[in-house]
Amino acid sequence: MNVFSTPSGALELTRFPADPRESLRAWDAADDYLLRHLAETGTDLTGEVTVLGDRWGALVTALAAHRPAQITDSHLGQQATRANLRRNAPRAQDGVRMLTTRDDPPARIDVLLVRVPKSLALLEDQLHRLAPALHAGTVVVGTGMVTEIHTSTLKLFERIVGPTRTSLAVRKARLIFSTPDPSARHGANPWPLRYALPDGIGVLSGRTVTNHAGVFCADHLDIGTRFLLRHLPDRHGPDSVIDLGCGNGVVGTAVALANPGADVLFVDESHQAVASAEATFHDNAGPGAKARFLVGDAADVLTAVPPGGADLVLNNPPFHSHQSVTDTTARRMFHTAKDALRTGGELLVIGNRHLGYHVRLRRLFGNCEVLASDPKFVILRAVKS
Rank of each mutant, 00 (worst) to 15 (best):
S5N: 05
S8C: 14
L13S: 05
L13C: 07
R15Y: 01
F16S: 09
D19R: 08
R21C: 14
R25S: 10
L34V: 01
A39P: 11
G42Y: 02
T43Q: 06
L45I: 09
L45R: 03
T50N: 12
W56F: 03
A58W: 12
P68K: 13
D73K: 06
Q78G: 15
N84M: 07
R86Y: 04
N88S: 08
G95A: 02
G95S: 02
V96T: 11
V96W: 09
R102W: 08
A107Q: 00
I109T: 01
V111C: 10
L122A: 14
D125E: 10
A131V: 07
A131D: 11
V141L: 13
H150F: 12
S152Q: 09
K155M: 11
R159H: 03
V161R: 11
R194Y: 06
Y195L: 10
D199L: 07
L204Y: 00
S205H: 01
N211L: 11
G214I: 01
V215P: 06
F216S: 13
H220G: 05
G224W: 12
F227H: 09
L228F: 00
H231W: 08
V241N: 10
I242Y: 10
G247H: 01
N248E: 01
A254V: 04
V255L: 06
L265H: 12
F266D: 08
S270C: 03
H271F: 00
A275Y: 12
A279S: 00
T280Q: 00
H282A: 04
A291W: 10
R292S: 05
V301S: 06
P307H: 01
G309Y: 12
D311W: 06
D311V: 02
L314W: 11
H322A: 15
Q323I: 15
S324W: 15
T329S: 08
A337G: 05
A337C: 06
K338S: 07
L348D: 00
H354V: 03
L355T: 03
L355W: 03
Y357L: 08
L364T: 00
G366I: 05
D374A: 06
F377I: 03
V378I: 07
R381P: 01
V383I: 13
